[in-house]
């Protein structure tokens, strides 16, 4: 069953006189439990794709079914609630709040889900333990290595038990060793049944996924399952 279904998605920007189709009639369906990489050169529309899949942006036209619900017409608040409940983000530059501890960072999505503080902290602790950072609950992001920070970010993405994990170049700021560690975590999560969608331009990272979508000029040009 499809967790993500895009039907004829268009995303159009008007830049001065010219019209740019960042996404041009994209049709794709991603099932539960898939591990998908989206590849393509810069300007191919993969970031726009990511923003739309992640409910950070709305398509100009087309239909987007997330977990069975059509969300193309959602307003800002509905999108915010959807992001909170259905999507776990992992970003290239981690995007942790530098003033909060690892535990508080991981607990942040639960604040907006309206979970009580005690339960939040308990769940954040478990999530950090699951990514091997049980000893670093009180550390601030600046006190951790890139690989550790990204693991904190993964713990944060998992905390609300989302339908999909969206990773935007999750290994882009990491050395090779850390990159592979992070990929191992994603693979493990996928084996546990999580749906992972990952944007990357590194072929060796994409190799480790089970399905590779290639984009060019806003169009989906290749869809390869392995």
């Amino acid at each position: 069953m499809a967790v993500i279904q895009l039907k004829d998605i268009m995303k159009t920007y008007i830049m001065g006189d010219s019209i740019v189709h960042a996404l041009d009639h994209v049709n794709v369906s991603i099932d539960f439990g898939e591990f998908t990489a989206i590849m393509g050169p810069s300007g191919s529309g993969k970031s726009t794709m990511m923003n739309i899949l992640g409910c950070l942006d709305r398509p100009t036209s087309g239909e987007y079914y997330l977990d069975g619900k059509e969300i193309a017409g959602y307003n800002d608040d509905e999108l915010a609630h959807t992001r909170n409940a259905k999507i776990g983000f992992v970003f290239q530059n981690f995007n942790l709040l530098s003033k909060l501890t690892a535990q508080a960072n991981v607990a942040l999505p639960l604040v907006y889900a309206g979970v009580e503080e005690e339960e939040r902290m308990e769940r954040a602790k478990k999530a950090l333990e699951a990514v091997g950072l049980g000893a670093r609950l009180e550390h601030k992001p600046m006190e951790m290595s890139g690989g550790q920070r990204q693991r904190v970010a993964i713990a944060r993405a998992l905390i609300n038990n989302p339908a999909i994990i969206m990773a935007d170049e999750p290994t882009g700021n990491l050395d090779t060793k850390s990159s592979y560690e992070i990929m191992d975590i994603f693979k493990y999560l996928n084996e546990q049944g999580k749906t992972v969608v990952m944007v990357t331009h590194e072929p060796d990272i994409a190799e480790q996924t089970k399905r590779i979508l290639v984009m060019r000029d806003g169009k989906l040009v290749s869809d390869e399952r392995r």
Partner: peptide
Amino acid sequence: IRKALGATY
């Protein structure tokens, strides 16, 4: 970041 994680207006 807060908005991406689900903070509303």
